[in-house]
Amino acid sequence: MFEARLVNSATFKKILDAIKDLLDQASFDCSESGIQLQAMDNSHVSLVSLNLKSDGFDKYRCDRSLTMGMNLASLSKVFRCSGSDDTVTIKAQDDADTVTFMFESKKQEKISDYEMKLMNLDQEHLGIPETEFSCIIKMPSAEFARIVRDLSQFGESIVISCTKEGVKFSTQGDIGTGNVKLAQTNNFDKEEESVIIDMQEPVSLTFACQYLNLFTKATPLSNQVTLSMCDNVPLVVEYQIPDLGHLCYYLAPKIEE
């Protein structure tokens, strides 16, 4: 028997919004420790890694580990039926081929449930090597989304260059070039608004705008985003989900032609 209850169903909806444009379908691996999802997009350029810890849920029970393969467009339809203040309870029997989502309104005057068919997905888990990153940049998530959106108008790629002075985002296209430089802030009172750079060595890498834009769909989940970079290694874009876990995206770099 698997049962997970989240008072704030809106959080799950935000997680879904953050992954459904990258992935058509994905397996949710449920165990005693929580729910995990790891999946690559169809082009094998990016990878989504979601980790929700069991004690972040208001109720969590998982007697036997189970993998629930879901079509994310279908799952989105289910969550479109939930109210923003609803509580969600996710339930599945051991070896079941369906999962049930129950939504309860705050005062419990409305209760709805949706049963969805599960899928058998050929899932391939990738080993992600431990990396000592050259640069770790922590910045407001809304600022990152804004920069990616702005620069995407001009080119297909963004070069992210990090030195100890700051981080520079650059693009070039047919109409010209664009650069955004962010300096490290000294505003330690407001951590949420800070740009903090932890640099061992300067690094400069090129990434596809298309994917960076899809990653920023996670912006509503967290005020801050962390970008971890190292030469010749995929970029890690990490959003902490307060009290529940984290959502990480990995993006393979572009290399010189």
């Binding site: 350029v45 990738l126 080993g127 090129t206 596809a208 995929p234 393979a252 572009k254 290399i255």
Partner: peptide, 14 residues
């Protein structure tokens, strides 16, 4: 600008 690499060049199946 640049050629897109595959994630499979970096991460191997478990």
């Amino acid at each position: 600008a640049g050629n897109q690499t595959s994630l499979k060049n970096f991460f191997k199946p478990k």
